[in-house]
Amino acid sequence: MGYEERNSIKRLFTLHLPVLVITLFAIGPYIWSFITSISPPGGMRVQAGEAIRYFPESPTIFNYVRLFDRINFLQNLVDSMVVATFAMLFGLSLSLTASFSFSRFRFPGRKYFMLQFLVINMFPVVLLLIPLFWIMGRMGITDTYLALVLAYATFTIPFSTWMMTSFFNAIPKSLDEQAQIDGCNRFQAMIRIVIPIAMPGIVATGIYIFITAWNEFVFASVLTGRSVQTIPVALQRMVGQHEIAWELLTAGSVVSALPVIILFFFIQKRLISGMTAGAIKS
């Protein structure tokens, strides 16, 4: 057995197989959703004593047609995309500067603010709904994109700020000091040196904000619901008082995960480029 061959067998057992198992665990319920979504209503149901069906007898795309034709799911996708994108951009820009400040400066009140950011995250949001709804009503922005963008961008601030402060802290200060000696001002040092190096962390945080906004239900249901209707609200409508539109619901969930997965496929390369790029520059 040649070295190459042995090596590839070793890789099969120490890399490919374990990754496959983890991936299957991650997508198992998703696959189950997909199988349900291509079955006719009640198609997966089996009588007592029969074996569970792992594939519908007559697969159909009918539920997907219903989803786009009769429920206007495309509009829900657009709404979710708009809200999640702007929440991510807005949230990132708010917390980028804040965490740069926490990471690179020592100033009075710094610890207090960091702690405050942590503690405000500890309160169950359901108890904040009434005052929040009232505030948004006063601002006249209920049932708009802005309400959700604002809510998601701010509610993820504590998380994003702390997380990015950690990522920034992992970057040697000598790098931005060097840049300042070379004639950059402090803002330029942040933009040109720290941000490029911290890109994996920023991307990871951005993903966090995006996904949070993509999935969030409680705010979306209370603060919007008429002209703006994100995916979780649309999906929740399929869960009725006496009935669950199960095939439709699973079709909706299969579709709703796709944009994020595709987006991430292109973005994930960014998760590795930062440090190498930074190292070259320094």
Partner: peptide, 11 residues
């Protein structure tokens, strides 16, 4: 407004 049943009362 079609409010989801699951959150109707809360909303």
């Amino acid at each position: 407004v079609h409010v989801p049943w699951g959150s109707f009362h809360d909303d």
